[in-house]
């Protein structure tokens, strides 16, 4: 009788230690996320990158967002991208290239006085869509533009 009680105590003690360990594990990535979202930038899959930066993968295609990029980029190392949006209360604009080793290229947090207009240059591994995700009023909207990347830079 006493023997089984001993075993029961041991088992419950082990279980509680496990629970504490799991709790500690859950906390670590959160502290890392507080500064630069390394998890989102190091993600190699589109979904993981989107989840990490905008907190969701479901977006609504919107005509109020325009992605301006060249139809054909001769040099994939420098592709000029402009994202414009007329959506109200834009909180952030994120730019993704799904075929890149790290799909998340850049993300911009806008203040209330900043226009929904960003131009920058990004790298593209090969021909793909450039996807812009805009967080407006807590919702996610997206637009895309296909860019053909010709390797070698000789035009095509």
């Amino acid at each position: 009788m006493t023997n089984t009680r001993r075993i029961f105590l041991k088992a419950s003690l082990a279980a509680s230690t496990l629970a504490v360990a799991a709790g500690a594990n859950l906390l670590t990535p959160r502290t890392v996320l507080a500064a630069w979202p390394a998890k989102a930038f190091n993600a190699k899959k589109m979904d993981a990158a989107m989840n990490g930066i905008v907190g969701g993968t479901q977006t609504t295609p919107s005509n109020d967002i325009t992605v301006e990029a060249p139809d054909i980029a001769e040099n994939g190392a420098i592709v000029s991208i402009t994202v414009k949006t007329s959506l109200p209360k834009v909180e952030s604009i994120s730019v993704f290239v799904p075929v890149n080793a790290y799909p998340l290229a850049s993300s911009y947090n806008l203040s209330d006085t900043t226009d929904g207009f960003i131009t920058s240059r990004i790298k593209m591994a090969k021909t793909s869509n450039v996807i812009a995700v805009v967080k407006s009023n807590g919702k996610l909207y997206s637009a895309k533009k296909s860019v053909k990347v010709t390797l070698g830079g000789c035009g095509g």
């Binding site: 799909p103 993300s107 911009y108 920058s120």
Partner: peptide
């Protein structure tokens, strides 16, 4: 404006807003 950039941004980055 706060920009969070990854390695996918081109060399000598250009920014306009």
């Amino acid at each position: 404006l706060t920009c969070l950039w990854g390695p996918g941004v081109s060399k000598n980055p250009y920014l306009s807003f």
